[in-house]
Structures are given as C-alpha cells and as structure tokens.
Design a protein around this nucleic acid. Structure first.
Lengths: 241, 241
DNA sequence: TCAAAAGTGTTCTCCCTACACCCATGG
DNA sequence: CCATGGGTGTAGGGAGAACACTTTTGA
C-alpha cells in the first residue's frame, strides 16, 4: 500500500493514461476488446463502475519508457493480451477538461490489430470480452468518441498500409479478406475487381490449391508473402477504393 | 510568485506540454516558426538555453480546455501569433523517458498552417523567427524529431485536404501553388498536368485576367473559391500525386 | 538577343469499373 | 434440385503522364 501525498509539484500536473482500441477479426466480423469496469479493482476505478470501457490505465512515470509502453502494460494487466510495442499505433490525445470526473486526465489513445484466432485464448475472459463492432455497448468516459476516432483512423491507414496482414489469420481466403475491408470501410466491393487488385500487389501466395481448380464452392486458401509485404510497406502503398 | 510544492498527488504525474510546428509559405519557400530559448524567461527554460526550439509550453490544468488550447495559448505568449483553435492539428505524442532532462515531460505536438504574408507582421521578432525549411538549425530537446514527424504528417494530409487554402496568400499564381506542393512533397510536377488537375477541382477563380491572355511571363492570378472548397472538404478529397 | 518563365492541348496508356456465366457444395 | 457461394475474363471509359511550342520579360 502506497502512502498518499508522496509526490509534490510546483504546478498542477494532469494525470496521463493510455487507452487501447484492440481490433480483431475472426474471418466474419470486425471486433474490439472491452473490459468491464469492476467496482473495486483499483483506486482509479471508482467511476463508471459496471460499465464497459476500453482497456487502459495510468502511465507509470518510472516504469513506462513511452506512452506506448503504458498501453502495452495496461492491456496485459487488464485483459491478459501481450502485444509487441510496435503493434500499438497512436490515434490521438483526448484532453477535454471534463472527460474524467475525478481529476484532470488526458489520455493518449492507441489502436492495435490482432489475429483474433491466435489471441482469443489468451484473453482473460473474466475481465475482457470481444464485441462485434455492430453491437458495441455504450462505453465509459469519452470512450465512445475515442472508438469512433480510432475507427476513422483505421479507415485512413488502410489506404497506405496493407493492414490485412495483421488482422487476418495465417491462412485465409479472398472472401475473408474482402469481408475485412468491407467491414472496416463499410462498403461493398465487386468480387472480381477486389481479387484482381489484391493479386496485382503480389502479396498473396496460394497455400493449398486442393485439386478443384475453379468454379468450386470452397474458397482457395492464401497466405501473405512476407517479403513482398515488407517491400510494399517500405516503399509506400497506395490503395484506391 | 507562486508558492512551491502546492500540488500533491498520490502517484507520480508527468508534466504535459504542447508544442507547435507552424508552417508558413511566402510564395517561394516553405518556412517554420522557431523561438530562441532565453536564459531566464521562465522557470522551465533552464535547459537548452540559447538554442532554437519549437514554440510550446506546459499545459495549464485550470485554464486550458484541451491540449490544443495549450498550444494556442503558448504560441501566442511566445511568438505573438494568435491562431484559432481549429487551426491546430494534432501530430502525435512524444513521451520518451529522457526527452527532457529536468523531469518526465510528455508533449503533444501540433501543426498549423498560416498565410505567412498575413501574419509575418504580428510575430514578435524579438523572440521568434521564420526559418526556411532548408536551413532549420538543430533544435532543442527532441524537437528535430517532432519536426520530421510533423512534416510527414503534413505530407499525408495534403492528399486528403486542400491544404493550399490555408497556406497560400489570398491572391496567388499557379506556379506558386505548384511550388508549394513541390516544397511539401519534395518532388517536381509537370506544369500542365498540375494546372489541369487543380482546375478540375473547380476551386480556383481567376482574379485579374490582365490583358495578356497567354504566352506571357507574368502569371495569371487566382483566388480560392471558398464555397467549392468547403464542399470538397466536406465530401472528402482524393489527390493523387 | 538570349535565357528563363508561363500559358496552352493532345495522345497514349493504364487502371478502375461494370458486368455474366459456370461449377460445386450443402440443405 | 435448387439456392448459395466462389472462381474467372473482358470491354469501355476516365484520368494521369508524357510531351513541344509560343510569348514575354529581364538580364
């Protein structure tokens, strides 16, 4: 138990938190990871108890090398998910004076893209739950707004980075990839045009061309070609939709 | 004079600042606004005295409604420039543990675009100076890095927003506009293609078609059509280069 | 008078778009 | 057996890129 009143400053300092919007894709729907704010988890949880919220928490000034490390640490603590530091992309700072009723808190929102199938097991089901984007509940604090901004940020980024790489399972089908893009951008594409566009990037490798060559109902399986993916990412990427 | 040690927190809080990268364009070169860190301006200026830095300063937890208001206020205090709150666009948070030798400080960097001709007079020449992007000196703290990120952010944004509107003087010529885009993106364009592209957006209005119709060395003057500009901005903008 | 700057229009190519048919599987 | 889902190719249009010549002014 820490003593109170240990830290003294000449000027008022705001508290700083990092919040995480973790997107996952199960091959059908885009989902995000939320936590239930417990009534007594920690001293800071005395607001919005019982409501759903984005995982996140206060920066540890001594331990966290950057605010992304805060995001990483808090996500692990609150949901069990351990992601690499480079998986976190900054969305924006949220600093409205009244966004937290307890004290002045500014948060740096981050988002991360994960292969849902690979990590679903490691999320602590006691505290955290995956929600389809279509039925996200109302969230604590200004987390609704943060989520909206994170989504629009993802929609931007998708034009410049082959985002699918991070969200898709190792092995996937073209309809799944198309469905992901459609879920994120909230539009519909023509099957053939989408397939052509993707194939022209040369990022896709056929995994298992199981006999039935074409005109079958079971889709062809692909994996990403990591080399070409890295080349594309380095030299920039332009995706028109 | 404030008393020291007034503010006590249960946990360590980082200090939070806002820094500003203010871009201006004089029709020839892209410039940014820097301040000289004085030896005794304020308590916080005891590091990097004498070096050039981005304008910015500590968040006032009581006064600043958002971190953008911090940027606005500090820019005014340090350079004399009074911009609207919506002129500030967030770049990113910089939070490396050792970015400030004095205490843990995280900064939210912003950028702003101004009509240099219109504001040059109101910048306080005692403290602030406009530097061509080509001869920016080495900056205090991690401001070199912040500037680099701000530039790449501007390069991104230019594809989606008709950025020229904010940077160009009221009256301008096509070569000036082209030069601006070339300065920001660090590329060269074909005169005719650039002109066609811009004209197709319908944002340009001829101001003064002074007799010599074509084949003259004095360029045609334009102004932006604010209505069409707003329409374009609202419905999104796609600029391929 | 010569070099540098600015205005203009056309062609070609490529990519995006729209669109129809066949096959296989599962209910 | 029929509905659903998935795979494939082509033709047309629009927009970007490449390209040369003329005029004026300032050195």
């Amino acid at each position: 138990m820490k003593k109170k009143g240990q830290y003294i400053y000449e000027y008022k300092h705001p508290a700083v938190t990092a919040d995480c919007v973790v997107f996952g894709y199960d091959g059908k729907e885009l989902k995000i990871l939320l936590i239930k704010r417990g009534p007594e988890k920690e001293a800071s949880s005395t607001a919005f108890t019982g409501s759903w919220a984005l995982p996140g928490g206060f920066m540890d000034v001594d331990k966290d090398q950057t605010i992304a490390h805060t995001a990483q640490r808090e996500l692990k603590e609150e949901t069990g998910l351990k992601l690499g530091i480079k998986d976190f992309r900054e969305v924006a700072a949220f600093s409205d004076r009244d966004r937290d009723p307890r004290e002045r808190v500014i948060t740096i929102a981050h988002y991360a893209l994960v292969k849902l199938a690979a990590v679903e097991a490691s999320t602590d089901a006691e505290k955290a739950e995956w929600f389809s984007m279509k039925d996200v509940p109302s969230l604590a604090f200004d987390h609704d707004q943060i989520l909206r901004v994170a989504c629009s940020r993802l929609r931007q980024d998708i034009h410049f980075e082959p985002v699918g790489f991070d969200l898709m399972p190792e092995i996937f089908t073209l309809p799944q990839l198309q469905n992901l893009y459609e879920s994120i951008l909230e539009v519909k594409f023509d099957r053939r045009n989408f397939a052509n566009k993707m194939k022209h990037f040369g990022m896709l490798t056929v995994v298992e061309d199981g006999t039935p060559r074409h005109g079958t109902r079971t889709p062809i399986k692909y994996r990403f070609d990591k080399e070409n993916y890295d080349r594309l990412k380095a030299k920039g990427f332009q995706l028109e939709f």
